[in-house]
């Protein structure tokens, strides 16, 4: 059997396996109506916060001291806040920021975690020792202490908040990816691919990644929710996204003083945070079940 045939056979086998997986995959998706609903909710939310301002053109940061804490009206569909700003416009603007922070922080965490975990799990040896010890260090510092120190050090610029929150969960991500890599590395077709002379990057991308991806996607989905909650927590402590930029977190924080006067101010951002994070979590759990039917 020539190398070419072996390679062809290998691909064929992999493809068959994938096709079968795909069929089963869709069957499983259909068994997750909640997950589908969550996905729809998220798409709607994203559309609302990104496309909404094209329809609802009121400026979110426009203050008006003579029109504070007003009830909903034609001019302000959800009324105004403590500085006379339009609540609906701020909910939308805050949503853009919160979702962006959540998604970008997840991307940062995922990227660093995948890279670190992947390298460690793939190459083993010294790389693994160094990377995984670093992971231990980060796991040993309670996230929030680390985030607190970093945000204090570098200020509350949105990029800082995103990177910091992302760094907050790279270690967890790296650990999972590392474990998957170690497992997958032992699979026959990966070893076969290596034996057939595939380069390291090619092997990792073509053969290992697809096996690791499901786990990563699940973690990513849960990670977005976690990141949004973390930003809200930071905002509560005055360390999150800073005004004049709105985020659901800092809106909630501001609203605290107005609980007696106008509780709606707290209800809107609180509700949006809860629904969004809930949707990401439900989606994550559904994905986990889809990818790993035994759960």
């Amino acid at each position: 059997m020539s190398d070419a045939t072996a390679s062809a056979l290998l691909h064929e086998a992999e493809d068959d396996a994938r096709k079968a997986q795909r069929g089963r995959f869709w069957r499983r998706v259909r068994r997750q109506p909640l997950g589908v609903i969550a996905l729809i909710v998220l798409v709607l939310l994203a559309a609302a916060v990104w496309l909404g301002p094209l329809v609802y053109r009121t400026a979110p940061n426009r203050t008006d001291a003579r029109n504070i804490l007003k009830a909903p009206s034609a001019a302000h569909l959800l009324g105004t806040d403590e500085l006379g700003r339009d609540v609906l416009a701020r909910v939308l603007a805050g949503g853009r920021v919160s979702l962006s922070v959540g998604l970008l922080a997840m991307v940062v965490g995922l990227a660093i975690g995948m890279l670190a975990g992947g390298l460690a799990g793939y190459f083993r040896g010294r790389v693994e020792v160094v990377v995984m010890r670093l992971v231990d260090v980060f796991m040993a510092i309670p996230n929030f202490f680390l985030i607190l120190v970093v945000v204090t050090a570098f200020g509350n610029h949105p990029v800082t908040v995103i990177v910091t929150v992302g760094i907050g969960f790279w270690a967890q991500m790296a650990r999972v990816v590392h474990a998957e890599f170690v497992k997958v590395r032992g699979f026959e077709f990966v070893e076969a691919a290596r034996a057939l002379g595939a380069t390291h990057p090619r092997t990792m991308l073509r053969h290992v990644m697809p096996q690791v991806a499901p786990q990563a996607i699940v973690l990513a989905s849960l990670g977005v929710g976690w990141a949004i909650l973390t930003e809200a927590g930071l905002s509560y402590l005055g360390l999150g996204i800073q005004p004049p930029l709105a985020s659901w977190g800092n809106m909630l924080q501001n609203a605290q003083s107005y609980l007696w006067l106008k509780p709606e101010l707290a209800i809107y951002p609180g509700l949006f945070i809860a629904v969004t994070v809930l949707a990401f979590n439900v989606l994550g759990n559904a994905l986990r079940d889809v990818f790993d039917p035994r759960g």
């Binding site: 940061n61 203050t63 001291a65 500085l83």
Partner: peptide
């Protein structure tokens, strides 16, 4: 300070 500053900004 923050809300007062935002009003002055406006």
């Amino acid at each position: 300070l923050v809300p007062a500053t935002l009003l002055v900004q406006g």
